[in-house]
Design a protein around this nucleic acid. Sequence first.
DNA 1: TATTATTTTTAGACAAGTCTAAAAATATAT
DNA 2: ATATATTTTTAGACTTGTCTAAAAATAATA
Lengths: 220, 220
Amino acid sequence: MNSFTEENYLKAIFKLSSPKVDGVSTNAIAEEIQTKASSVTDMIKKLSDKKLVKYKKYQGVHLTKKGKEIAVSIIRNHRLWEVFLVEKLAFKWDEVHDFAEELEHIRSKELTNRLDAFLEFPKHDPHGDPIPDKDGNIYNHKDITLSDLKSAEKGIVVGVKEHSKSYLNYLESVNLVLGAEIKVNDVIDFDHSMSITVNKKKTANISHQVSKNLLIKKTD
Amino acid sequence: MNSFTEENYLKAIFKLSSPKVDGVSTNAIAEEIQTKASSVTDMIKKLSDKKLVKYKKYQGVHLTKKGKEIAVSIIRNHRLWEVFLVEKLAFKWDEVHDFAEELEHIRSKELTNRLDAFLEFPKHDPHGDPIPDKDGNIYNHKDITLSDLKSAEKGIVVGVKEHSKSYLNYLESVNLVLGAEIKVNDVIDFDHSMSITVNKKKTANISHQVSKNLLIKKTD
DNA sequence: TATTATTTTTAGACAAGTCTAAAAATATAT
DNA sequence: ATATATTTTTAGACTTGTCTAAAAATAATA
Ligand SMILES: [Mn+2]
Ligand SMILES: [Mn+2]
Ligand SMILES: [Mn+2]
Ligand SMILES: [Mn+2]
């Protein structure tokens, strides 16, 4: 078995991995996990001994098949518990992440699958992130953000790239929740801020900082 | 905040405390928590520094008000999650304890109270143990066991004193689940085994080992 | 009461995970 | 290509919780 700490490192490495980067850097992991680079090096060695990552000094780190499986199963747990907390216990989308950070470490295929069934196999968590299926497949939606839209284009909010309480609270205050319909009225060249209409009713002015973190599915 | 380890010690001390014993012994705690007496002494000192227990060398240990509050809140969590796992995720009563041992440490009054509400404020967990209310009050049922009944007396199963998988499995195989109606047909003097009728249908022979761990509410 | 047995505590060591400070490797700039 | 800056690793220390072996205190027995 692996400690919570080990699991959190695997999750961080998974999050930082992408086809673009060949090997996740020590510093990036340290930043993600809020610790020192020296601590990361120590842990990487341990994970490497356990064959959960592939590691060559100074060359960055890759998850092995086994390491990736564990990371994905934790993410599946995390997102399912977030759905539970919102759908069944009536928490708001900005209140559930920290609980899920703890619940995700209770790792049992049986428990996870039953929770999944109880929730009626949700496809996305309360922030629009895709929930890996029981075989570990993740169906990411393509990465279009509100900031990619031009004047007069329309879309539906399908997710957020930033999960902070303050961001989520702000979104709610302007009705930019999952499923909200957006029409772009105007984009300011200078700072890329935009004027939008939400659900055909309210008009709001949105900074680039806000629009670039809002995942959108284009309509029309 | 307290570590899982500290919380488990508090729970153990609570479990071992009773009006009868003045001070829980180091050895008893070691036995309960499956560790060495020397480790217990170390931890007791730490809990004492944190004012969660009252401790005088060689004199055993008492929970303080604060320590007791924490212990009770963990037990409340544990039992509520067990209800969730059985009622909502359709686990059996012998499968839920180990999960609850982990879930109980996610300590948030808000989460616990919402879970309680979602489960419609259950009074007992799947093993018949009382669930502390949100103010920490526990309403224990009086301690009558099947072994206290005499020939021809009747009762209803309200709980179990032993929680092992093997015991719970056995009980289920002879229909001795919570709510089962029992009539004692005969008690053998030699080994205190008894012949009983369950739910007016099945007859079973029950050893003393079994009957003394089955909590009963007398009827008639 | 003196002796023996049991319980509890202390002393010292170890593994996990973290940190700071310094050394080594790699990347960037002149 | 050399010097400088940045990243990464090592060395050594600290904390938490555990252990074994031995000492000290308490309880049981003769
Ligand atoms: Mn989250
Ligand atoms: Mn989420
Ligand atoms: Mn239990
Ligand atoms: Mn129980």
